[in-house]
Amino acid sequence: MMPDVDDFEEHRPMLLGLAYRLLGSMWDAEDVVQEAWLRWQATDHDEIREPRAFLVTVVSRLALDQLRSARVKREAYTGPWLPEPVDTAEAGPLDTAELRDTVSYATLHMMERLSPPERAVFVLREAFELPYDEIAAIVGASVANARQLHHRASVRLAEGRDRFSPSSEEHAELLATFMRAAGGGDLAALTELLHEDVVSYNDGGGKVRAALRPVIGRDKVVAFLRGLVARYDFRGVRMLEVNGLPAAMTEVGGHRQLVMLDIRDGRISAIYGVLNPDKLAHVHVG
Rank of each mutant, 00 (worst) to 15 (best):
E50T: 14
D7R: 10
T102V: 10
F54I: 00
G185A: 12
M179G: 04
A248I: 04
G24H: 02
S168N: 10
A127W: 12
V56T: 11
T57K: 14
R238P: 00
Y20V: 05
P117T: 04
W81V: 00
A29G: 14
R226G: 07
G205D: 06
A270N: 12
A188I: 09
L194P: 00
V56Y: 07
S269T: 12
E159C: 10
R267W: 03
Q34D: 09
F164H: 14
V155T: 13
T57F: 03
V259M: 09
V32R: 01
D262W: 08
L64A: 12
Q66L: 13
H255V: 03
L130W: 01
V215S: 13
I48K: 08
S269W: 07
L15P: 12
T177W: 00
V139N: 00
T96L: 09
S115Q: 02
E10T: 14
V283T: 12
R12V: 01
N145G: 11
W27L: 12
E47S: 15
L16R: 08
M239V: 05
G184F: 11
R152C: 00
L175D: 04
L23R: 04
Q34A: 15
G185Y: 05
D4F: 14
L108V: 04
L22R: 07
G217M: 07
L190V: 02
G236E: 12
V72K: 09
Y105D: 06
I138D: 05
A182K: 09
M2K: 15
S104M: 07
A270D: 06
A97C: 05
Q148S: 13
L261Y: 01
I263N: 06
Q148R: 15
G236V: 06
